[in-house]
Computed example of a mutant assay.
Amino acid sequence: MSSVVDESVTVRRVAGALTAYACGDALGVPYEGRPPTEDGAEVIETPRASDRWAAGATSDDTALTLLVARCLVDGGGEVDAVTFLSRVAAQDPPVPGAGPSTRAALAAFRATGAVPDDREGGTNGAPMRALPVGWSVPPERVDLLVARTVELTRATHRAPEALVAAVVMAGCASWSVSGAPVAVVVARAVELVEVARPVCGDAPRLAGLVGAVVAGGWSPPPSGVGLDAAETVAAVLHCVRSAGSVRDGLVAAVRCGGDTDTVAALVGGLLGGGSSAEAVRAELPWSGLVAVPDAGVVWRLASGLVALRESVR
């Protein structure tokens, strides 16, 4: 009976994480590409349109993260890079707002039908869509977490720093929905960098930034958080480490400036893992004004991901 209860609790946590991820994405969209801001929470939390997005819209971050979750569930956890790229390429209409590494990978795939054998793709699209992998794997199966993350990430991002960044975010997500305190989730990031190294290669910049965050010695760059994978992970961990709630974390992420939708989405995905979808919506009353995925879809994906998680214990 206890395992059934534990599984149900984890499903609720994954649903909360996915809901908070989409909320963070939508909150960050109007501030994307802008410098850091001191806007008050009441201003940041008022959905409005940007040059590219309607008020309350989520971006490619949520679209691709949902696609990763669907691929994992549909494939029983066995998803390869070619299958993932095929599904991205088949989206009609195409995924809006995809980043430079993803666009380049799609162009190459359409031309050759294969995943390039290179070390290109170092942007933050790698960690951005990694959380569902962590939701599908328990923390003790770090070998499977690394393998599954790398296979799904290399479809578009093959630079070592990006691959390791994806592993770090997937691992943090796995710990988050296991009920680990925020301090533990952040501390695990240091270990995950080392665990990923034999498979992904060295990531010295990421290792240095993560270490600085854990030691409390990192601050967001004055120009805002860029598309660099390592910098994005540092910003996410910085916001998570200092947040008192999901709401606090999302507002802090937007205030960092730069790629605010990705940072806020990942912050929401990690902090929301300690809650439920209903609790996230109650804490974020403005969530009713944004394009959060349908509750039924969220629950089905969460249930499928947690079934995968339980099957490999």
Rank of each mutant, 00 (worst) to 15 (best):
M1T: 15
S2E: 15
V4N: 14
D6T: 14
E7P: 13
V9H: 13
T10I: 14
T19F: 04
Y21I: 06
A22L: 05
D25M: 08
V29C: 04
E32K: 01
G33N: 05
P36I: 06
E38C: 14
T62N: 05
L66F: 06
R70Q: 12
V73N: 05
D74F: 02
L85K: 00
S86I: 13
V88P: 08
V88G: 00
A89G: 09
P94Y: 08
S101K: 08
F109M: 02
D117L: 13
T123V: 15
G125D: 11
M128Y: 04
P132V: 02
W135A: 00
W135T: 05
V137L: 09
P138K: 01
L144S: 15
L144T: 15
L152C: 08
T153Y: 00
R158T: 07
A159I: 03
A159R: 13
E161N: 09
E161T: 03
V164K: 09
A166T: 04
M169F: 02
G171R: 00
S178W: 14
G179S: 07
V184S: 15
V193N: 07
V193A: 04
A196T: 08
P204Y: 13
G208I: 07
A212F: 05
A215N: 08
W218F: 05
S219P: 12
A229D: 11
V236D: 02
S242I: 14
V251F: 12
A253N: 13
G257N: 11
T260D: 12
L271D: 09
L271G: 04
V290A: 07
A291Y: 12
V292S: 03
G296E: 04
E310A: 15
S311E: 07
